[in-house]
Design a protein around this nucleic acid. Sequence first.
DNA 1: AATTTAATTAATTGGTCGTTTAATTACAAG
DNA 2: CTTGTAATTAAACGACCAATTAATTAAATT
Lengths: 223, 223
Amino acid sequence: MDGGPADMPNRKSPGRPQASDRSDGEARDVLIRAAANRFAAQGAEGTSLRQVAEDAGVTPAMVAYYFRDKSGLLEAVVRKGLGTLLEVIDASAATHEPGAFLSGLVRRYLSALAADPWIPQILIREVISRESPLRDLFVEEFASHAVSVVPDRVLEEMRQGMLRDDLDHRYFILSMLGMCLFPFIAHPVLGPLLHFDVDEVFADDYGTHVLELIARGAQGGAS
Amino acid sequence: MDGGPADMPNRKSPGRPQASDRSDGEARDVLIRAAANRFAAQGAEGTSLRQVAEDAGVTPAMVAYYFRDKSGLLEAVVRKGLGTLLEVIDASAATHEPGAFLSGLVRRYLSALAADPWIPQILIREVISRESPLRDLFVEEFASHAVSVVPDRVLEEMRQGMLRDDLDHRYFILSMLGMCLFPFIAHPVLGPLLHFDVDEVFADDYGTHVLELIARGAQGGAS
DNA sequence: AATTTAATTAATTGGTCGTTTAATTACAAG
DNA sequence: CTTGTAATTAAACGACCAATTAATTAAATT
């Protein structure tokens, strides 16, 4: 016995924890993971730091210690998500087989989103759909790099005859992004209705569907 | 002069307003419109009733009077948006030219979303992407009806040879919804980057792109 | 061994939010 | 004309939240 009453078991005393107690990963990473899940499920403004801290097994004050404030925590979460997506783009850009860029990108993209469904949810809800400080982070840290590599390769595939060159490439990018992101956003409500789940199997099947669609369209018969 | 000091111009006194003062529409409708815009721009949880009330030119207490509480106000906003979309579906289902259902639906859909951009934004952020009481509203008030008419007509067009019948229709619906909704959600950030604006012209051009894409695909050359 | 630094909690503070209540005025019905 | 009802505001209440501060413990450095 340590003198503490038995009916208050999980009350930690202050002070730096012993190195042997670091359960799995440092508190900083645990906080980011907890925040990513909560923010994805409830929205950042609908989540209190108390909730995040409890999920992470620490006190709300740790958020200030590691991230300065709530917006700093959100920024760290977004940075992590964008980092994952940047890796996907660079990995796809590394392969130079003719015509394999776009299909590789779609498959890797869907696979990455299925592995971390919080990425598309937070990206859409907290970043891409409103004006906010995160907008600048997104543009400078991600979009500018993505725009410098993706459209070039798409135009290259157009010249090689893999893609029609009469498409407006802005609209093409919009429709591709929409197709790839939407299932992950709508899954909480549409998943039960349409009987799909966002896992690795879905990423594979749905990726085939998307690539088939841009390859031959959905219209039949007339050919 | 009414005895009030001139440096406090817009302070209304309590009591029922004179019938001639009803500027445009009743307070209930003004509140719904104000809330729709705020909720779309900042998210419902990121918007205070004080903000909405100020936009509408009334007091926060009016929210309680007309909608009981904040969730009631959000529900009214969502109901209005879903009503608009239901009209779109029914109008499209009314035309019985063979093969014209899907294309008509896409065009009307995009046109309606362009006219009221808050609909897709609120639908995605507050309804479709999280578990909440609104989920049931969405399913019972909208999805059940939509599911009872749209897939039948799509399958009909498949049998008529307008659409390939080897497509998984669930995936097809997901990709169509993604393509049609995404530009309106991503517009605040992607609009400036890709140089597009969500207006009637865009709805027309982008609708052509989408229909072209499902008609013939994006791949060229090989034909 | 002593001191500084890192990591953590408890407790508090100031502010904002949703909601409620009471008062107030105009309109409607008798 | 009187009484009741509909529509509105002002003011207050309690809850919760993000952020801060002070205390506390372990590790790292000297």
